[in-house]
């Protein structure tokens, strides 16, 4: 890949372009570490959750996020489309732009997304001018519905949220990458940089991770490790991976001129 092509390789979501393909979650670690984690991750998009505000001038996460980073509020806590729409509208009113990551869960044990409610919320919010990034269980029919509903990207889960189990849904994510003409951003369950790299090699447009970093021994170093892995995976994808032989072997050194001949 030429240097020029590398420079032009942007992640485009809802008409906004980003150099970084690593979306960082901000949950489960202290506010003091957020700036360093964002910087070491090279992240240009960070997710946030909307909650009731405490009285009394408490420290606010927005004071700790470096300038220029796009805020991606999620609708966590929503159990149906109506609640997700309410949370999205409140998030926009805080004043962080019009990006929203839709998350709708009815299941509290496995935290699996409700795909049909997610399609409904996507349709409503896209019509209202939001850049809608729905979190979903990787299903081709749902992904097509999300695209038709106006989603700006599709965010299939790799494994249950917070599990760090890696690419459990790999084959189904590949189908979305192959068939859906939107950025496919692998979200939830990615537990190690190697897994992020693999998803990028498959052609994922970006990776979102939170728990893998928040539960690491060194949060800031792990943020950087993910950045490097995502970059390596993207470059490998653009380069075109070498072929796999089902059987046999193929020497990579010349098969003539051996000194024993």
């Amino acid at each position: 890949m030429s240097e020029r092509n590398k420079q032009e390789d942007k992640l485009v979501i809802g008409g906004h372009s980003f150099d970084s393909r690593f979306i960082l979650g901000s949950g489960k670690y202290s506010l003091d570490l957020i700036q360093a984690a964002v910087e070491h991750a090279g992240a240009q998009i960070i997710t946030l959750a909307l909650r009731r505000a405490n009285q009394g001038g408490m420290a606010n996460i927005m004071d700790y996020i470096p300038e220029g980073v796009t805020l991606l509020p999620n609708t966590s806590g929503a159990r149906n489309a109506e609640e997700a729409v309410r949370i999205a509208k409140l998030s926009r009113e805080v004043g962080c732009g019009n990006f929203v990551k839709i998350e709708i869960m009815r299941d509290s044990k496995y935290l699996l997304p409700d795909n049909s409610e997610t399609v409904k919320a996507t349709e409503i919010l896209a019509k209202e001018g939001f850049v809608v990034m729905p979190y979903m269980y990787p299903d081709l029919n749902t992904a097509r519905d999300l695209q038709n509903a106006g989603a700006a990207a599709v965010m299939p889960l790799a494994a249950p949220i917070g599990s760090n189990k890696g690419l459990c849904t790999k084959e189904f994510i590949q189908i979305l990458i192959d068939e859906i003409d939107l950025p496919i951003i692998v979200d939830a369950g990615i537990g190690a940089p190697s897994q992020a790299c693999e998803a990028m090699e498959m052609g994922a447009a970006a990776i979102m991770a939170n728990t893998a970093i928040a539960t690491a021994g060194d949060i800031v170093q792990m943020a950087e490790a993910f950045k490097l892995a995502v970059k390596a995976g993207r470059q490998a994808y653009l380069s075109g991976l070498g072929r796999v032989m089902e059987k046999g072997a193929s020497a990579s050194s010349p098969l003539t001129g051996f000194i024993s001949q």
Binding site: R51, L90, M105, G162, N210
Partner: peptide, 12 residues
């Protein structure tokens, strides 16, 4: 009245 703000969060 509901008063809301952002907090750390990734998924859920």
């Amino acid at each position: 009245i509901e008063v809301v703000t952002f907090m750390g969060g990734g998924c859920c």
